[in-house]
Simulated assay, not measured.
Amino acid sequence: MSTEPAGGADAADRSNYCYRHPDRQSFVLCQRCGRTICPECMTQGAVGVICPECMREQRASAPRTKPAVLTRARSAAGRGAPVVTYTLIGITLAVYLLQLIPGLGVTNWLYFTPLAMSDIALQPWRLFTTMFVHSTSLIFHVLLNMYTLWIFGQLLEGLLGRWRFLALYLLSGLAGSVGVIWLADPNTSVVGASGAIFGLMGAFLVIQRRLGGQTTQLFILLGINLVIGFVPGFNIAWQAHLGGLIGGAVIGLIFVETRKRSQQALQTWLLIAFGVVLLLLSCRYLVFPLA
């Protein structure tokens, strides 16, 4: 991804670069002073992130004794570690282990089917929970998804910031479920984080292209994964892949086009509006009941 200095840009563009590292582009603002900071300069605060100068002021008046676990977690966050990515991976793997325990029925409670958004059995939580469960008959399903999440999570969480990245992941997963509702048979059952992960790739593709980065390899990777979804016998929900990809691309476009400091409120409202649109689209079988 291009990170050219903003020497030739106007004042608005300069605000998109870290005030301590002028060659590093970022969309993250210090919650106290409002200046742009890169992952290396940010420290996770109670709400949002804080730049080094504001952090020093805060620590000067903070208590000196803290629990060791909390100190280590905050230290990792302060170093710019992708804690949201690690948390999503940890939750998914923990759920997978619970799926393996006979009698719990975790998969039955969390998988998604379009029927869950119909008058037959309204269970809207499945729109989101499906991205945390995977096939227990093929361990490579969860391992491959988590490996891909680890790769793109580190890239995007550092660039977008933790809360934007979490919104991207969850809304992309929701878009994947919407894709299943509109493109698959109503009796289809799906599990997996693939919709959310395709959303990460879609967002990364849009951001790369809009900022002048190379996208050839990503196009090839996306093409291969999309084609695999149509291969007979693989039993892959390509509908979730396509829905997540489109949803992630839309969110990536929102992030790129509203990255200026003065557009932060607009960005939030656009994300909320897109989430509402996805929820409305998920009501297909409530508006038009199955026969």
Rank of each mutant, 00 (worst) to 15 (best):
G212Y: 04
L270E: 06
P39H: 02
G229M: 12
E57F: 06
F140P: 00
L159K: 15
V206W: 13
L104P: 08
L221G: 05
Q123R: 15
G105A: 05
N235W: 07
I37Y: 02
H241V: 01
Y285P: 00
C283S: 05
L222F: 03
C30P: 02
D13H: 11
R259N: 08
R72S: 10
L159T: 11
E4V: 14
L156G: 05
T216W: 15
V49G: 09
T3S: 14
F230M: 05
Q263C: 07
R64E: 10
Q31K: 10
D10E: 08
R79H: 02
A6I: 10
S15F: 00
A116Y: 06
L144G: 15
Y17P: 05
R209T: 03
F219N: 14
Q154N: 14
F198I: 08
L70Q: 10
T148L: 15
T136V: 15
R162W: 03
V250I: 14
W150D: 08
V277R: 01
Q264G: 06
R24N: 08
V250S: 02
R64N: 10
I228C: 08
H21I: 07
L156W: 11
R24T: 12
R64P: 01
P39S: 07
R261A: 12
F230T: 13
G229I: 06
F219I: 11
F112P: 11
P289M: 09
P289R: 12
P289V: 10
N16Q: 09
Q217L: 14
F165M: 07
